[in-house]
Amino acid sequence: MLGNLLDNAGQWARTRVRVTLREAGGELEIAVEDDGPGMPPEARELATARFGRLDEAAAGSGLGLVIATEIAAMYEGSLTLATSPLGGLSARLRLPAGLP
């Protein structure tokens, strides 16, 4: 999951990717943020749907965010997309802190 998020951030960032990890309320939260062009709110749902590619010219299959979302759900976690304080996209992966 993290590999997919880092790959996307690295592909779209202009100059900066920031990764943070925190534990709160029995959850681990990994945030991957970049300073790239970002993603409009209406496109975020499409980006996590199978074959919901937003840029056909970009490299990749369009499955990275879908795979990360589905695996997170298998572990009773979630992946949310938002606007990063850096100006680009923020992907927040939340997982239960007590995973085996």
Rank of each mutant, 00 (worst) to 15 (best):
A9L: 05
R50V: 14
L79K: 08
E23S: 02
E45A: 12
A31H: 06
L6H: 03
E42Q: 14
E70P: 10
A59W: 03
R94S: 04
A73P: 12
P100C: 05
L6C: 13
D55M: 06
M1A: 10
L46T: 14
T48M: 09
E76W: 04
A72G: 09
I71E: 15
T48C: 13
G36M: 01
I67E: 02
T20C: 09
G3P: 05
A58Q: 14
R44A: 00
V32P: 05
G25N: 06
A68Q: 01
E76A: 13
G38P: 07
A13Q: 12
N8W: 10
A68M: 02
G10N: 13
R16D: 09
A72Y: 03
W12K: 04
R92F: 06
A13I: 02
D35G: 08
A82Y: 03
L81P: 11
T20E: 12
Y75Q: 13
A31M: 07
D35V: 01
T15A: 13
L79M: 00
L2T: 08
R16V: 13
R16A: 15
Q11C: 12
E70Y: 03
E70M: 03
L89K: 05
V66A: 13
S90I: 07
L81W: 00
L5I: 00
E70N: 07
S90A: 14
D55F: 08
Q11L: 15
L46H: 11
L86W: 02
G64N: 02
R16P: 02
N8I: 04
G60V: 00
G52F: 00
D35C: 02
L54M: 04
P40I: 05
R50I: 12
L81S: 09
M1I: 12
E27L: 14
R14N: 10
A72I: 10
P40W: 01
I71M: 15
A82V: 08
A97E: 14
L54S: 01
L2C: 06
P100I: 05
T48A: 03
R94C: 11
N8F: 00
S90G: 06
V32M: 02
N4V: 04
R53T: 14
